[in-house]
Design a protein around this nucleic acid. Structure first.
Length: 558
RNA sequence: GUCCCCGUAGCUCAAUAGGACAGAGCGACAGACUUCUAAUCUGUAGGUUGUGCGUUCGAUUCGCGCCGGGGACACCA
């Protein structure tokens, strides 16, 4: 395999720096990682590095002098580098030979679906747990945002060479679940004309009545007027299963499929709780006070210690989570990422404390907090209170705007800022809608390729096409965008910011639209036509691969 | 009261691990179809990055204080 372009350039720069060290110009031991960036302004070259400024502090020399030393000893003969210039406070700007761009096109043609994959993760095992909504009701739009972010992040990590597992943790036991069953049971009895008091904190949503009706359809009055152990159990299990099915379906329709659905109950079946408590006690982080067991989370920076086993012997939710995270560790993951809604952020400290109390490294667990979503319709906020019963479910949203648009809107902004989801923009099939803008670029390309085929233009697999004919400014622009995909994937995999990929996608579509307006692909010039067809086909491939990672479809016609 | 997130163009948001003149879209204004899809493209206007200090060659980015918005602070889940 060929050496990576950026690695090659870094090596050339490094050689010069090391030469200067040997000559006694630079007095340092270790050279920091050289960072190559693509300048915003093209008058600053194709690539640029700020290494001279980075070294300035340690060398106690002016950045400009350092840059001069480096450039003077730079050996760019027979390399991909065409020209070097020092600019501004000490940037070293590099211009590359045009050839590198054509190499990119060949690489895309060769790799196809695999273009964009990089080996950053080295098969490291990462688990991402997201959504994990209590199965007490349907998913709402906020959960959709978590789902979109988690799913996209997983896909990106996979593309970056990590081994990724997507997991959904099901809180299928506890008071909430009991309450859920009782709510349906009460509705069921009421529907059959039987008196039964609705639980005080019961679930009042319409979906509870629907489930009760379903029970009637299937079992008629079999459970009418009963309030024994068996009937309670029945309603609990039936409801739980119904709601979980609904959640699974909603997520599937949203394009999200999990590798593992992990049941909280299974932790207790294995009697792991005892074991973990024993371990924590041994390690000296568990103590008894006022009849309850507490974990010394304050040792690790939490504001107060937390109860794990209540006075009444019932373990808290936190206890389950500790056992659950131990289980994650024991499954052999190198890193575990939890994606939580903003209302759970207070839990981070105690969870990370628990990780450490168990004896695991603090950064074994990373938690991403996804901020809320506000729906806007006709310029006004749509109320979403769960209590009042009137809230917008993910299913409703997908039905209204479609899966592609919903996912894109959740992914186009940084997950840690509030999302303002404008339903009118999302529904408009116009230029206001970035999703259509991107998909339109893809459809346009497909349309051109189809037309070329129809007029008998063919390019065989191994055929050599003169790519040098691609020499227009818009063509260079476009190819540069195509070539930066791998850097973007790396960046996102390191920073966990999927929205950077969305931005990239939009930029790429934009470069193509501009190109399309200025130049014709299919012309009388056979050679040029072929070269341009290759260019747009490469664009198609990159658009496709990126859309796929984000979970958005790529329609060939619009 | 304590802790977390946010504050950037009229609006919604970006800004690559501290880098060059802070960028997009929408909205406003002015233009471009005899063309492979005008769901497109081009141009103009729009900013003391909430505020005051500090760190340094350099701060939207890091630190501290203040102002404003949101959220979290249970032997609830």
């Amino acid at each position: 395999m060929k050496i990576n372009l950026t690695d090659e350039i870094k090596k050339i720069l490094l050689n010069s720096i090391e030469k200067n060290i040997r000559q006694g110009n630079f007095h340092i031991k270790d050279v920091p990682e050289i960072i190559l960036l693509t300048p915003k302004n093209k008058t600053y070259g194709d690539l640029s590095t700020n290494i001279a400024m980075q070294l300035s502090r340690e060398l106690r020399l002016k950045p400009l002098d350092i840059a001069n030393f480096i450039v003077n000893d730079l050996d760019i003969q027979d390399t991909i580098i065409d020209k070097v210039k020092i600019a501004g406070p000490g940037f070293i700007n590099l211009w590359l030979k045009e050839n590198w761009l054509y190499q990119t096109l060949n690489e895309i043609r060769e790799k196809g679906d695999d273009y964009g994959k990089v080996d950053l993760g080295k098969r490291e095992k990462v688990q991402v747990e997201f959504v994990s909504v209590n199965p007490t009701g349907p998913l709402h739009v906020g959960h959709g945002k978590c789902a979109a972010v988690g799913d996209a992040l997983c896909n990106i990590l996979k593309a970056a060479g990590y081994e990724v597992e997507k997991e959904y943790y099901i809180n299928d036991q506890g008071r909430q679940i009991d309450l859920l069953g009782q709510s349906v049971q009460a509705r069921y009895n009421n529907l059959l004309g039987e008196k039964m008091e609705f639980p005080v904190d019961g679930y009042k949503g319409e979906y509870i009545v629907d489930i009760a009706k379903e029970v009637i359809d299937k079992f008629q009055d079999k459970y009418k007027g009963r309030d024994d152990q068996e009937s309670r159990e029945f309603f609990k299990e039936f409801t739980l299963r119904k709601i979980l099915e609904g959640i699974k379906k909603d997520l599937k329709d949203f394009g999200v499929e999990f590798d593992v659905w992990f049941s909280e109950r299974s932790l207790y079946e294995q009697n792991k709780l005892q074991e973990v408590m024993e371990l924590l006690k041994q390690r000296g982080f568990l103590y008894k006070k006022e009849g309850a067991f507490w974990l010394k989370t304050t040792v690790f920076g939490d504001e107060k210690d937390r109860v794990v086993i209540r006075e009444n012997d019932i373990p808290t939710y936190f206890a389950s989570d500790i056992v659950y995270h131990q289980n994650k560790y024991q499954r052999g993951f190198d890193k575990v990422i939890d994606i939580w809604g903003a209302d759970h952020h207070g839990y981070i400290k105690r969870m990370k404390a628990a990780i450490q109390a168990l004896g695991y490294p603090e950064d074994f667990l990373e938690v991403l907090i996804v901020q809320f979503v506000t729906l806007i319709r006709e310029g006004k906020e749509v109320g979403m209170s769960t209590r009042g019963g009137e809230f917008v479910t993910l299913r409703d949203l997908v039905r209204e705007v479609g899966k592609d648009v919903a996912r894109y809107f959740f992914l186009m902004r940084s997950y840690d800022s509030h999302t303002e989801f404008d339903l009118d923009v999302a529904k408009s099939q116009s230029m206001e809608n970035p999703v259509y803008y991107i998909q339109y670029a893809y459809a346009r390309i497909c349309s051109i390729i189809k037309k070329a085929k129809e007029s008998g233009i063919r390019i065989d697999k191994g055929e050599k096409v003169n790519l040098q004919l691609l020499n227009k400014e818009e063509e260079f622009e476009l190819i540069k965008k195509l070539s930066s995909l791998k850097e973007v994937i790396k960046k996102v995999a390191l920073t966990w910011k999927p929205h950077l990929l969305t931005t990239y996608l939009y930029d790429l579509a934009s470069s193509f639209h501009r190109y399309y307006t200025v130049h014709r692909v299919i012309t009388d010039d056979k050679e040029l036509t072929k070269a341009r067809l290759i260019l747009i086909d490469c664009t198609r491939i990159v658009l496709f691969n990126t859309l796929k990672i984000l979970g958005i479809s790529a329609p060939e016609r619009m």
